[in-house]
Design a protein around this nucleic acid. Structure first.
Lengths: 199, 199
DNA sequence: GATATAAATGAACGTTCATTCACGTCAATG
DNA sequence: CATTGACGTGAATGAACGTTCATTTATATC
């Protein structure tokens, strides 16, 4: 997942998958160290403490997801297509980084105030990017929603849910799942959804 | 929340709110005891161990939510109205029991195998009740969904999200929020939603 | 009012936790 | 070749964990 095989990256990777499986409080430094094949004390050569690993993992996810979903948004498109673009890349990112999304959703409460401030801000930015799309669509009369803020949150929690059950080894292909969630998300705000052309 | 003021109920209530706030692993028996105004050892007069408190809280929620949402479902209604009935009572229950819903969503992984089996089964039943409504609607041609199973999960995770942000003290009334989520859920499966008549 | 049962206490148990530290190793640098 | 600094080890630290237990206190039963 993370590029490079430095010990620091191995720690990040081990922590990400362990945090996603057992939760921050359910994982010990010993377990992380063992996953990396090192001793617990050695981790402190790379991170000052356990909390810093969580903050690091969360921030890396936030900047990667921002780059993958928010940055490419094309402001010239009409609200419907902008929303479809957002949802498609968002779901695609969620599926490809399900551990990160799961952690982002579940471990906000495990953040101590220092790390929480910055991460909550980036989170709000993400949510408000979606909210402004919804507002535009509402003003243009192409979405049927009674409250853009609530609908934005409802779309995000709906899409976050995919990480709870989806496994690459399951019956569905990622493409099928993405398409299904795109349909559900677009329809949920009353946008028209048409199945993509066969390839 | 729980009726009666027996110590056992007080422990349940304290644990529910602490688990919801900090997670199962983030709460100690000492904290629960302190919330109840007792000493840690005394809890073991009422529950055999910490895990049993979690199982107890989760099971109480499952039976209450089943009674409030699944049991009243009227099989004679057409799929659209059955779905609306389901979503409305489900969201209403979620709002009134947000700690329980939060725990049900977050702490499945904290369950040891014994307790997990029964709780996962009840959960599956709940999900399949919604799935069969969606399948009926799909067959009747009134829903626009490509996969009833995925759409069922997507609706449930969307509605579970309300517990993350909604507070009784906030600007919206529960009725507003319920109505908004009913709209989002119905639209997400392509069902027609019409605003309820003014009262 | 004596007796049985339930509930609460306060201290302790062994274990695990995150973190620290003195010390070894070894590649890169001057 | 000597030195440095980054990295890893293995043992140790004190605190916190879930749980146990002998004992005391409260409540109900006869």
């Amino acid at each position: 997942m993370t590029t490079g095989h430095t010990t620091k990256n191995l720690i990040r990777d081990a922590a990400r998958s362990l945090f996603a499986e057992h939760g921050y409080n359910g994982v010990s430094m010993r377990e992380i160290a063992q996953d990396v094949g090192k001793h617990p004390g050695g981790i402190y050569n790379h991170f000052p403490n356990k909390q810093a690993i969580l903050v690091d993992v969360m921030q890396e996810n936030l900047s990667r997801s921002h780059e993958a979903v928010i940055a490419p948004l094309n402001d010239d498109l009409d609200p419907s297509h902008r929303l479809e673009q957002f949802v498609r890349s968002h779901v695609r990112y969620n599926i490809a980084n399900s551990d990160d999304i799961f952690i982002a959703y579940m471990e906000l409460r495990s953040l101590e105030p220092d790390g929480a401030a910055h991460i909550l801000k980036e989170r709000k930015d993400y949510e408000s990017a979606l909210r402004s799309i919804l507002r535009d669509g509402q003003n243009a009369g192409v979405f049927k929603i009674s409250d853009p803020a609530i609908h934005a949150r409802s779309v995000l929690s709906m899409l976050a849910g995919v990480t709870v059950w989806f496994r690459q080894s399951g019956p569905q292909t990622p493409t099928d799942v993405v398409e299904c969630y795109v349909q559900a998300a677009l329809q949920s705000v009353g946008a028209t959804y048409s199945t993509p052309p066969e390839r």
